[in-house]
Simulated assay, not measured.
Amino acid sequence: MQTTVKNLEVSRLVSKVLFSHFKENRSQSDISKSLDLSPAKVNRIIRQAREEGLVEIILNIPHIGVMELEKELVTNTGLSKAVLCPSYSEPASSSVIQIASVAAEFLQDTLRKNDVICISGGKALASIVEVIKPSKGMNITVLPATGGVQGRHFTDVNYLASKLAEKLDGESMQIHAPLFADTQSERDLLINMRATKEVLDMARHADIALAGIGAVAKGDESYFDLRHWAKNEKSLVAESQCRGEVFAHIFDQDGMGCIEALNNKLVGLTLEELSNIPVSIGVAAGADKVAPITGALRGGFLNTLITDELTAKHVLDMY
């Protein structure tokens, strides 16, 4: 009987402490005075209550599901960082702007003084450069990670490197060579030219890489606007197992390079070189980007992903 009474007293004391702290929002020091307990004992009661499951904390904060999804992506895919924006039933153009804004904010939070950043070309990068906030005194260097594309001025990597450096009050360099050479031997010649080699060597040792993740499954994506195609080349890609591209290197759903005859004509960093950059960021969203993102994560050449909530869910389902 004495034991039962004692247990009841302890139980009531624990209940009083927990109710006072979590329901009445009273401080631990206030509770210790009112119940004539030492502050250490009040703290111990609250800590043990958490450990024994007597306390459950429910956070009714905006986008808690998004943050949980970010953690799930990191845990399941080996990413170092996942940054997601909520998915809303808005026009696709609004989603692009939203993701670009998130990517721009993440980039500026990540950048440190004197950092070197290398980038790809493309629409995603153009959107990020457009919305990034100007900053001063960072001494950032922005480099193209690939050669350029004629006729695509506002999404060309050299133009974007220049504009991003301007926004960041830094400096940029350019690669005066095409993204695709006509042959592998021509490509080897181009990347070993002193002017090109100097920029690519700096890009290989960049602190941050920022790239769009493209799709290639249908044959009408942006990748197919990057060069003049020989007869049957375009259909060869569309009919293959290739699903995505980063730095214009095409890869399948498992992150393995495919149609190496095309990849070997590229003037730029390889996917292996990309994976060696400390912070390698991929940006993409949408149903058509699920397989490319999955392949990029399986290939391990990106350690940071910026996308939206719905795309991330589909990537986890496929991964």
Rank of each mutant, 00 (worst) to 15 (best):
L274I: 04
S20N: 12
V14Y: 09
I64N: 12
I117W: 06
N114F: 10
C258W: 03
L316Y: 08
K265I: 03
A230W: 14
A49Y: 08
V55D: 07
G137T: 05
I213V: 08
N25C: 12
E72C: 06
S101C: 01
A161R: 01
E72D: 12
A100N: 01
D254A: 09
R187F: 09
E260S: 08
A296Q: 05
M1D: 14
T196Y: 06
Q253M: 10
A238G: 01
I119R: 04
V17K: 00
I128M: 08
S280Q: 04
E9W: 10
V216N: 05
I140D: 00
L125H: 09
G268T: 04
E105F: 09
W229K: 06
N7R: 14
L37K: 01
A312M: 02
R204W: 03
F154L: 08
L310T: 14
C85V: 14
R44T: 06
K289E: 00
K136I: 07
A103M: 03
D109V: 01
V14S: 05
N139T: 07
D288Y: 11
S235M: 09
M173W: 10
V131P: 02
E171F: 09
A215D: 11
S11L: 13
L310P: 04
S27V: 03
S93E: 15
P292C: 05
F224Y: 13
I277N: 05
V315Y: 01
Q150E: 13
L107Y: 01
L190Q: 08
Q98D: 12
K16M: 12
A145W: 03
L266G: 01
V131K: 13
S120E: 06
T141G: 10
H249N: 05
